[in-house]
Amino acid sequence: MMPTAWAFLDPRGMGITLSLSAALLALVLLITHRALGRRLPGMQPAAFGLLLASAGFALNMLQSWLLPVMGLVLAVVCMVSGVALVLGGTRQLRGLPVRPGPLAASCLASLAIALWFGVWMPDARWRIGLLSLLLAALALLLARTAWDEARPQLRAGMRLMALLGMVFAVLMGLRGVAAALGQIETTVTPTLVNAASVLAAGMSLIGGVVGLVLVLSGDLLALVEQQRTHDPLTGLLNRQGLRHWVASQSAEEPVVLGMVDLDHFKQINDLHGHGMGDQVIRHLATLLQACGSEHCRAARLGGEEFVVVALGSGRGPDLRQMLERLRQQFADTAPQPGATLSAGLALGSVGEFEATLREADAALYRAKQAGRNRVEAAFSAI
């Protein structure tokens, strides 16, 4: 009689190999996340949860060689606690509140099931069935939580975690049903259900680590892009980021530019220190951020020089009024008393952005020549 195909798949060997691989990857992820400054809240508990679940999975594969308290009870608690930690960490990554009560209850339930049906009143059918259903429920919650991620930089990793969580939940549910029907007596017996369950569990652990790696790399790529296109001191767009935004608009789109420059900024640095100078720049940037919208951007071009770009026809008078309000508000609230700004206004189109920028700069120069603390318009904007 020919042996069935899954008879050659040793659940114990597969489980130990996959769990050790997942544990090593989770440990590397923890070290990497720490080295990168622990930027993502929730990454550490999620990665530690995968490490804990991997350890429990390995212990479960070795239960016939260990004392029941270690090979069964500790294994079960580690696996369920690990999955609960991954769920809690995923909620933190999503910015959702973590509910420790239900997570702790699932861990206590797994401990009670392992003790009662594994040590005091041994019954493999109830133990395996109930624990499989508990793990399936946690995996379903994890899949739902991860799938709803909306941030583009984190979506790929979260979707992978959701997919693997769903697969794991389905197989654990089938395993629970098989145990209830008396089809499973031990975890390591070479049967189709055991082989599929162990393979799914091990691959889900490894896939969970890969998903978290994708989340971490997506966040780092977003950080690099943020640093490439934004000024680190103020958080406004830098010159490159502004040009990238302008280039994404239609070349015929009308545009109005307001060049803004702090008056006598060198004196502020010389007399009061560069720390005060940075405070003044950040304060102006905070005021400029109020103009940010779908059709308006503020950017720091360098040093004490800023620009406001508004798209659309007829925006000149509105931007002129905004610059006048900005000038007065800055003079009234600047961290350094007496600090003022000047501005130059120009009209043009996206296709002539650089020429319009030069016109606004020329208008700004006239404002400086006329005594500073004023707004001047280029001839195109009069």
Rank of each mutant, 00 (worst) to 15 (best):
G13S: 15
G15S: 10
I16D: 04
T17A: 13
L18D: 02
S19Q: 12
S19D: 08
L29N: 02
I31A: 14
T32K: 07
R38F: 12
F48Q: 02
L50N: 05
L50S: 00
L51V: 06
A55I: 09
F57C: 13
M61K: 08
L62S: 00
Q63D: 07
P68K: 01
V76T: 11
C78Y: 04
G88P: 11
L96H: 15
V98T: 11
I113C: 00
I113R: 02
R125W: 14
W126L: 15
I128D: 07
A146K: 01
D148R: 12
Q153C: 15
G157C: 08
M161G: 02
A162K: 01
A169Y: 00
A169Q: 03
L174W: 09
L174V: 13
R175Q: 07
R175N: 06
R175Y: 07
A179I: 15
A179R: 11
T186G: 11
T187I: 14
T187L: 11
P190F: 04
I206Q: 03
L212D: 01
L216N: 03
L216W: 03
L221H: 15
N238G: 09
R239G: 06
H244R: 15
S248P: 12
A251G: 03
V255F: 00
M259Y: 01
D261A: 08
N269R: 05
A285R: 06
L287W: 02
A290D: 13
S293R: 05
V309K: 03
G314V: 05
G316N: 01
L319C: 07
Q321Y: 09
L326G: 00
R327Q: 14
P337V: 05
G338D: 11
L341E: 06
L345T: 03
L357S: 00
R358M: 13
D361F: 08
A367W: 04
G371N: 15
R374G: 04
V375T: 09
V375Y: 04
F379R: 14
